[in-house]
């Protein structure tokens, strides 16, 4: 599904060049459940951003379903993210002004879908995370776990093949964190490729494949 070849990503910090990703080569098959681990600054978030087309490599090639993505224009990348990739963040990133339903609607809105059709999809998505009765709550009226579930529903509402999660449990208590992980794993079992970046060793071990990164390099890759 995904082929990364010799991906390099450098940042200029003062006079120094930091190699956030250093010649990363990686193959990811559809349906994989991968955890990316490593100390902070090892490049795991950069890798995730790269995979999610939020960031572009300085060199190397990124094939997604045999399509080269590094040459895509800004607008095409936005479209690609919209259709193929779901994001989940440590800090949930819900729009505070919009209700749970409103947040779920956002990606659909971006495609220009009609409101009637959107409502149906939003209801389904909320039901799938067990929050149908919280549709009209604002984020601040929801618990952390609920917020993250809304975020997951939002990430999945376009039915993307790839789900990227950056420390999805980092801001949650153990109980809520477990629930979130279980929700993600259920999604993985329906065939969605799941990549989780985490500090949490226990969480990392649950994945079918774990990748260890140090200084921008993949040092360990084990299925």
């Amino acid at each position: 599904m995904i082929k990364l070849r010799d991906i390099c990503r450098n940042f200029q910090v003062g006079d120094e060049t930091v190699h956030a990703l250093d010649q990363v080569t990686l193959d990811i098959a559809a349906g994989d459940y991968i955890s990316v681990m490593g100390p902070s600054g090892s490049g795991k978030s950069t890798l995730l951003n790269m995979l999610g087309l939020l960031d572009m490599p300085n060199s190397g090639s990124y094939l997604f379903e045999n399509k080269e993505l590094t040459k895509l224009s800004e607008e095409k990348r936005a479209r690609f993210r919209r259709e193929k990739i779901g994001f989940i963040f440590q800090s949930f990133h819900l729009v505070p002004r919009l209700t749970a339903a409103g947040n779920l609607e956002l990606p659909l809105m971006l495609t220009g879908m009609l409101p009637a059709k959107r409502r149906v999809l939003v209801q389904e998505a909320l039901a799938s995370v067990g929050l149908e009765d919280r549709a009209h709550h604002l984020p601040k009226q929801l618990s952390g776990g609920q917020q993250q579930r809304v975020a997951i529903a939002r990430a999945m509402i376009m039915k993307p093949p790839l789900l990227l999660a950056d420390e999805p449990t980092g801001n949650l208590d153990t109980h809520s964190g477990d629930e979130i992980i279980k929700t993600l794993e259920v999604l993985n079992q329906t065939g969605i490729t799941l990549i989780v970046v985490t500090h949490d060793l226990e969480l990392g071990q649950r994945a079918g494949r774990t990748i260890q990164m140090v200084d921008g390099k993949v040092v360990h890759d084990e299925s």
């Binding site: 936005a78 479209r79 729009v95 956002l106």
Partner: peptide, 15 residues
Amino acid sequence: REIGLLRALGASRTQ
């Protein structure tokens, strides 16, 4: 941050 999220959700610059 919200702008960043919108971009992650696939909003284009024009949008």
